[in-house]
Computed example of a mutant assay.
Amino acid sequence: MALPIVAMTLSSCGRAPELRVNDAVVILSPVDSNPAALYFTIHGGPEKVYLNSVLSRSVIRSEVHESKVDPKTGMVTMEPTRKIEIPAKGTVEFKRGGKHVMLWGVNRPARQLKELEAEFIFSNGDRIIVDAEVRAATAGDADKKDAHSGH
């Protein structure tokens, strides 16, 4: 009789959630001198952490930004932010019109290979390296007005 209870106990032991980053994509600006934007999704691990920065050897500079709508004017503004909270077992999307990473000076190899290596640095000391697809802006991207047009 003990076997079914042991089997049931073992099967109920799931894997702990793991801090991870996926779906990373860089959208290049149609104007080379303007910054590109990096979008991705972060899945939180067993405890709350903060994304402190995103680095890449393929860019001159990177900044974590957040777009916000001013409730009085309806204008979208974009501001750098020091850290983004990633809740335990939660999901945070970095997407157009919200949180994103601005990348200045994406180098030629990344543009030609259509891939850029990005390192995500978290408050708990974790460093996650992700290969992001590099894409040119499309007509659909131009239709989606956001705060990047001013950079």
Results as ranks from 00 to 15, higher is better:
62 S>A: 15
104 W>Y: 11
59 V>L: 09
60 I>T: 14
110 A>D: 03
116 L>T: 01
77 T>A: 12
56 S>V: 09
150 G>E: 06
15 R>K: 13
137 A>N: 01
126 D>S: 11
149 S>A: 10
31 V>Q: 15
61 R>M: 14
81 T>H: 13
138 T>Q: 04
78 M>V: 12
17 P>V: 01
131 D>E: 03
5 I>M: 10
144 K>H: 05
22 N>D: 15
6 V>W: 10
87 P>R: 11
112 Q>K: 11
123 S>V: 02
69 V>N: 13
62 S>C: 09
81 T>I: 15
135 R>C: 02
150 G>F: 08
85 E>S: 13
81 T>E: 07
4 P>L: 14
71 P>D: 12
125 G>Q: 03
68 K>W: 12
43 H>Q: 08
47 E>T: 11
81 T>M: 15
93 E>H: 12
50 Y>V: 00
102 M>C: 07
39 Y>Q: 07
12 S>T: 14
36 A>C: 09
42 I>Y: 00
68 K>A: 15
143 D>K: 10
119 E>T: 10
37 A>M: 09
132 A>Q: 01
28 L>G: 06
18 E>R: 05
129 I>W: 01
15 R>I: 03
112 Q>L: 13
77 T>S: 14
60 I>C: 06
109 P>D: 09
109 P>A: 08
119 E>S: 08
109 P>M: 08
150 G>S: 09
143 D>L: 12
27 I>W: 05
40 F>H: 03
2 A>H: 06
133 E>P: 00
14 G>K: 13
34 N>A: 13
6 V>S: 07
82 R>Y: 10
39 Y>S: 05
121 I>N: 04
3 L>W: 09
37 A>C: 07
80 P>W: 13
29 S>L: 09
55 L>G: 05
77 T>K: 14
4 P>Q: 13
97 G>T: 07
95 K>Y: 08
143 D>H: 02
122 F>W: 01
9 T>Q: 11
22 N>K: 12
72 K>A: 15
71 P>H: 13
96 R>H: 10
74 G>F: 11
73 T>H: 12
111 R>F: 01
35 P>I: 07
68 K>H: 13
116 L>V: 04
43 H>P: 00
48 K>C: 00
118 A>H: 02
50 Y>S: 10
111 R>D: 04
25 V>I: 14
